[in-house]
Design a binder for these strands. Structure first.
Lengths: 151, 151
DNA sequence: TACATATATCCACTAATCTGGATATATGGA
DNA sequence: TCCATATATCCAGATTAGTGGATATATGTA
């Protein structure tokens, strides 16, 4: 099991917004042989299920804290083994990280992976089309302005 | 069939970032009885398939232009009826709009719906947690700066 | 009206996903 | 060492998703 830092670095390398670099617009069925594409789809699939979306949201909400698997199961009101299966899906998609502490395994959200997913999706908007991006950015301006975090 | 403008307005009302308003963090299995949650999951599911993700990307790339169903099928290298089924999924998720012109049915991306999806996802980041949002925003700064579109 | 073109729908098959009881594995404590 | 606790894994059944041939429907043209 990686340290949290190591895991975060690993997740940061999962997604590479390279899809649009190879100009496959003429053949836009995303090839499943393309690692990046499969990972994006895997991540979308992982979140496209009620229990898993709820779990991911809860983990993001408490980040950088972690929640034990059993606790996630209880709060989701699903059997322990079902939650284990769900967490495995999120793990495989790189959206969560886990760490064993005694008898418990704690899970936390991987924000870099989430960031990469959103970036990959929004890339469609920004890539040479800033006029499409601006309305999207405006959604976050209350958050943005409040911290004056403009780089 | 709605006009493009009417359809865009309709899509803009599909997503409401209300989930986190009702403080269901203690019960974070997203209820399928909640319309908004089902739509988010439907949208994620719709994009979590290679052909459909590719189609959506292509449509976003040419927005506000539209592409006929047959053209989408040819360029995706899938049979016509398979593409029709995929487009139906995207339609049901509200991510695309269609309009018949003669024998063809043209499809275009619904950017408001896409925006709402991303907003809903990123809401997890921004909602009272701007320090989590800033790194995400920095991803778009090249795009942002180039147009000086800060609201 | 007949034929052509474009695309949705039907239908059936296969594969994948979800779910939960049962069991295996890992760790803690007496 | 034995028992308890936490959770992953196994297994099977039910459900859903993806796919493509065949057919139905909608529109265009002569």
């Amino acid at each position: 099991m990686d340290t949290p830092e190591q895991f975060q670095e690993k997740c940061a390398t999962v997604f590479h917004p390279e899809l649009r670099k190879n100009k496959e617009l003429e053949r836009f069925r995303v090839s499943v042989k393309n690692e990046n594409a499969l990972t994006i789809i895997e991540a979308l699939s992982a979140l496209a299920q009620p229990t898993r979306l709820g779990v991911f949201r809860a983990l993001v909400a408490v980040e950088p804290q972690a929640i034990p698997a059993g606790e996630l199961a209880r709060r989701s009101v699903v059997p322990q083994n079902t939650m284990s299966a769900h967490l495995a899906v999120l793990m495989r998609a790189g959206l969560v990280a886990s760490e064993r502490r005694g008898r418990s395994i704690l899970y936390r959200a991987s924000l870099p992976a989430f960031q990469a997913l959103v970036t990959s999706l929004v890339r469609d908007c920004c890539d040479g089309r800033p006029e499409l991006c601006a309305p999207l950015l405006s959604q976050f301006s209350p958050c943005h302005v409040s911290k004056g975090a403009l780089p």
